[in-house]
Write a protein that binds this DNA or RNA. Sequence first.
DNA 1: CTGAAAGCGCTTACAG
DNA 2: CTGAAAGCGCTTACAG
Lengths: 365, 365
Amino acid sequence: MPTDKDKHQASDQADGLQNTGAPAGEKTRTKLTINDIARLANVSKKTVSRVINESPRVREETRKKIKEIIAEHDFSPDLQARALAFRRSFLVAMIYDNPSPQYVVNMQRGILDTLEDTSFQLVVRPCDRNAPRFYEAMGSFIEQQRLFGAILPPSVSEDEKVADLLREANCPYVRIASVELDTPDRMIRTHDAEGARQAARHIAKLGHTRIGHIHGPDMFRSAHERQRGFEAGLAEFGLTLAPDMVEEGGYTFDSGVECARRLLGRPDRPTAIFAGNDEMALGVYQAAREVGVRVPYDITVVGFDDTPIASRISPTLTTVKLPIREMGKTAAAMLLADRDAPKRSEPISFTPELVIRESSAKPSR
Amino acid sequence: MPTDKDKHQASDQADGLQNTGAPAGEKTRTKLTINDIARLANVSKKTVSRVINESPRVREETRKKIKEIIAEHDFSPDLQARALAFRRSFLVAMIYDNPSPQYVVNMQRGILDTLEDTSFQLVVRPCDRNAPRFYEAMGSFIEQQRLFGAILPPSVSEDEKVADLLREANCPYVRIASVELDTPDRMIRTHDAEGARQAARHIAKLGHTRIGHIHGPDMFRSAHERQRGFEAGLAEFGLTLAPDMVEEGGYTFDSGVECARRLLGRPDRPTAIFAGNDEMALGVYQAAREVGVRVPYDITVVGFDDTPIASRISPTLTTVKLPIREMGKTAAAMLLADRDAPKRSEPISFTPELVIRESSAKPSR
DNA sequence: CTGAAAGCGCTTACAG
DNA sequence: CTGAAAGCGCTTACAG
């Protein structure tokens, strides 16, 4: 229910009072409505509406005339009114819990690439899946906003209950995830395992055999996919990841430092570490500096994400790169696509690529 | 005028066809309207409307009864309908061109701190003030969206034409800037000069005398404020900034590298550099590595912003910190505040603080 | 291919 | 303090 804060403005302030009228000199460039356009074009408003909505059921000549009048007067239909009549807003929401600012901003940019020059707007909704009333708050957000669509990057995308809420509210959505969680028209698949496999091959080819891994948070499917792919890549070279060479982090810098401290503190410390993301890889740099272990001479470090820091830090970080912005752009395009077009049978997918930089080298021991 | 992409859905597809009706078994938990609540409460819808809008003109008893019924049925008024009737949406836009993802995300979070649990949503609008049809696009965005309000961080906040567009459209806004550009109720002032002054004092006290500065892009007032404050701080110690010790960068990493190369390539190279922001300060690190100049032994580096990288890189970066999230939160609160409250006479302001880390030390030469 | 009527779910302006 | 009527600017359902 509405709260104090919801109050749009004190509408009743003048309730019962005389309308004092607008100041005489006020600029009143009244906005045109669909009625004005209809009158000017000598047609019914419904026909104008048909033109606005690109209905095929308008004679070409009529359409052209109306379009000219619309252009001439720089008319644009009222979004609030359209939304009310459609019972659907012009808002696309990005619902996310990814902690990396770069990831978030890149995806926002991608979505906006698609929404540019349309009447659709991007609404951002960061969230915490572990918050007390998470599903309740998400549910009322979805109910209330009548979103045109929602875009869900990991790990929100992996939450079945959120998808349920969206479906119940009849809200179209696109889930971006490293595993196929939904129907192809609602999925963008990222082959994280494949990226991790490339990282493993690279490390194996350099000659490393004592290899550690910093796993992402258990809640993220990507964390598992990355480890799975990494192990598969090692296996191609007859190598394995010892269970005690795996530490679980939280995709954050600090967790990376802690995990790396444990790994580097071992008597048989690894000569290479594959971190589940760049943030944690930077944590490895930090932990290495603390104990005087040099990257890459003493330890090879490989990350995942290719955040901008990766190419700005010294030594620059070898990492796995996913085209986040492009993914956001594609997700938004799926939402705006003709909803009556035939459904695809395979989800759109993106495969990451390995970016080799200075942090990986042959083992010195 | 609307484009193809604007098409909400092909509304006319079934024009003239029979309505096939909804599937029999479909869950039709029809959403309640204000009329239903009015009927249940035995009052007119107008009275319910008054309660929703917190009008004082309702008997306490009546209000209580209606509130109970609203809560019981978990009713929330339709936003689209309210927006149409109010002729104003429930959207707050953040319009920005700051290139730092961390800055952007922090401010978004701050704004959302305030909007949380209200019906207001945050719409993001990145832009490029040098784009060909910038003002045109911005104008139609503002006209079309009927925003509840807009928040403008630098350098968009410094654009008088954007403020004009907002005022013409009768859209409330808050400008965040390092100089007082508008009336106090529309301003959040950041004392960048004061932060830079602290940086100067710190550098001067360490004993540096040959000091360089990497200036931000000329388009940002903050770039000038920071240099001004920095020079003022040096002056307190009888020091000056030689004109040829100032290079103009673009608040980006790459521009920082280039400027630093020139500064460090001089025969009388400075022993300390104050960069206009952290991104450029990291560029100094890079340039220093290239020529074997060590931070902080050979060169002291001080930045501005306290981006997360500042505390993750080695050596950690001495920098000047502004509470970006808090600023966003305050800006949003100003927008939602009672618009009939008395106007303040002084703008709200934030003063940055110096964060001393490892990159600053006594000069060795 | 085109239109007159009704409706989307609210608020405003006026009246009592 | 409360309400009946009109309106916000569009689209839908029906008809021709």
